[in-house]
Nucleic acid binder design. Structure first.
Length: 558
RNA sequence: GGGCCCAUAGCUCAGUCUGGUAGAGCAGUAGCCUUUUAAGCUAUUGGUCGCAGGUUCGAAUCCUGCUGGGCUCACCA
């Protein structure tokens, strides 16, 4: 059974503020020195949390002592001259004598990741956004006060060090401190230095901690950004214009999915969070931006899984005077370039398979796939009764099969074939997708499941559409666009009818979009690529939550 | 929503099968230590064993329910 929850209202911040309870602040009453700033609007975001209270108490005491030494608790006047990476660049080629001669001075700020103390001298590993540089602090060099600050330092604090570069006995480039300051005292201990933070839930709920301690996690999100930057560059170079279209829609459309609903107070207007930007981007093609793209969020009110987050990022782009066949070539070129740019070579290891992006991608029609993987007979594609039996044999729920048949009431050959193909499509989703490991363009989609795609010139029951599958998951969906307003009107009507027989994911009739098409949309082809899923494959992540910085979770219970 | 699995110190984990005073390493605290890098040595703090019931003389351990999470199925991209 599917999730049978209706549209979920999204409350505004204003609404939530008026209903939230003021949490108690345990520390405020037990620790005089824990100074809490006033919070606007009387809503304090600090919830009661006694986690590691003993350790926190000790660290707050250290913070007090630092204030006694320095006159303030959280100084913000420290400037680092170089990053850790720049220090390694400047000093990396010099040996002990060379460094002494060069006398390279710098100041560096970052988080303390490890401390090795010898009483009157101490090594610190300091990490900034670019990497790690070791610092060496000696009592007789920095003086009593600075060394006292050092003794009040814990792993996890943010510090600032100024000094010159030298090499240790083990030949490690190190900053010999002349001054030492604690910039931000960490009140909570970092996870264990060797095993790190492994608990999946904690890593995702407290991403800030995950990013501090897990190198792999930082790398995944850097790679995600590189992927998006690469795609932008690729499209920009080819004359595509990046735009932003509305996230709040009055008419549901552009995809088949269940929406979130929100509300505009002044206009007293219910709005959907968009499930796809498609219909707006194609309005822009009408407007003359015939190479246009958007990389942004979509929202779908459906279940959560390792492949689904309620908000996810899509690239959608539209290319005037091109066809879905041109798009296949462009997509291959884009992904091949991306894989080459990110790693070495044209293949990617994912879930124990070597995915080959170097060779031309396989192209496979839906019907051929069903013949190959499910032994479908010809009758399955033309006779709704045979198709229904085929569907039930392949674990399509009877309820779904009935609903599909109810949408196709005509008795002519074309209607019968439409019904058969839509049933066959359900089997494809159940039985074929999992086999499509290597990048594969699946073509020959039924018109019945493609309300926005251009009808095939060779078969009126098919459309010029493909989906790209990689590692058994849909990564892209593309088609030659339907720009015949009369045909589009007819397709919208069918969506409305489908909604009437219980298809909760069907689109609504979009009058304004029809009007736009009546002004004339140039022939065009468009594609959507799931950035999260692409990132999963290119970073070796098995869960979508590993490539989304802050995935949706149930609220933490107190 | 169904199935399987998990929840013990700030973190990583033993202990559960076979019920008998709550354990280790790291982190922390107090010392020693001026070239370490999972530094070392000595001592030591820290737990309502996810929550609520039940069985029992006695429950981290057995039973039931609940909460949160993971995988998976369904829905979907």
């Amino acid at each position: 059974m599917g999730l049978d929850i209706g549209p979920v209202p999204v409350r505004t911040i204003h609404d939530r503020r008026s209903t939230i309870n003021l949490p108690t602040l345990s520390l405020r009453t037990t620790l005089n020195s824990y100074k809490v700033p006033a919070v606007r609007g009387g809503v304090c975001p600090v919830a009661e949390d006694t986690t590691g209270s003993e350790i926190r108490r000790q660290r707050i005491e250290k913070l007090d002592k630092l204030e006694e030494l320095d006159g303030q608790r959280y100084p913000n006047d420290f400037k680092s001259t170089w990053t850790a990476a720049e220090a390694h660049e400047k000093g990396g080629d010099l040996d002990t004598a060379g460094l002494k001669a060069a006398g390279i001075r710098l100041s560096l700020a970052g988080r303390v990741m490890a401390v090795n103390s010898f009483g009157k001298s101490t090594f610190l590993r300091i990490r900034d956004r670019t990497g790690i540089l070791q610092a060496y602090v000696k009592l007789n060099v920095v003086g009593e006060d600075a060394y006292q600050r050092l003794k009040l330092t814990d792993v996890g604090d943010v510090v600032g060090v100024e000094g010159t570069l030298f090499r240790t006995r083990t030949d490690e480039l190190t900053l010999a401190a002349e001054t030492y300051r604690v910039l931000t005292k960490g009140l909570r201990p970092l996870p264990e230095k060797w095993h790190g933070l492994k608990d999946v839930e904690q890593r995702q709920r407290m991403r800030y901690v995950d990013l501090i301690v897990n190198d792999g996690s930082r790398e995944v999100f850097r790679t995600r950004t590189r992927i998006i930057a690469h795609i932008r560059r690729f499209l920009d170079e080819r004359g595509f214009l990046e735009v932003e279209t509305p996230m709040m829609h009055r008419v549901l459309g552009g995809a088949n999915a269940r929406p979130f609903v929100t509300h505009h107070n002044t206009l007293d207007l219910d709005l959907y969070l968009r499930i796809a930007p498609e219909l707006y981007l194609k309005r822009l093609v009408v407007g003359g931006f015939d190479r246009v793209y958007e990389i942004n969020r979509n929202f779908r009110n459906e279940g959560l899984s390792t492949r689904h987050n309620p908000e996810f990022t899509m690239l959608e782009f539209y290319w005037g005077y091109a066809t879905y066949s041109d798009l296949m070539d462009l997509t291959e070129e884009m992904l091949r370039g991306l894989v080459t740019d990110l790693g070495d070579g044209t293949s990617v290891e994912y879930k124990g398979e070597t995915l080959d992006f170097g060779s031309p991608f396989r192209r496979l029609a839906v019907c051929d796939a069903l013949r190959e993987y499910c032994d479908a007979s010809e009758a399955v594609f033309n006779d709704p009764d045979q198709a229904a039996t085929f569907a039930l044999d392949n674990e399509v729920p009877g309820e779904e099969a009935d609903r599909i048949r109810a949408k196709h009431t005509g008795t002519d050959d074309e209607s019968r074939r439409n019904a058969s193909l839509e049933l066959a499509m359900a089997v494809f989703e159940n039985r074929v997708e999992e086999h499509l490991i290597q990048p594969t363009f699946v073509t020959g989609f039924p018109l019945a499941v493609s309300p926005l795609a251009r009808r095939s010139d060779h078969d009126p029951t098919l459309v010029d559409r493909y989906e790209l599958y990689v590692s058994g998951a849909e990564v892209a969906n593309a088609f030659s666009e339907l720009n015949d307003p009369a045909d589009q009107e007819d397709r919208f009507r069918r969506q409305v009818e489908a909604k009437a027989v219980g298809d909760q994911e069907a689109m609504e009739y979009d009058e304004d979009y029809i009007r736009a098409l009546e002004y004339g949309m140039p022939p065009a082809a468009g594609e959507g690529i799931g950035i999260d899923r692409l990132t999963m494959i290119l970073t070796g992540s098995e869960s979508i939550r590993d490539v989304i910085l802050f995935p949706l979770f149930r609220p933490e219970k107190k």
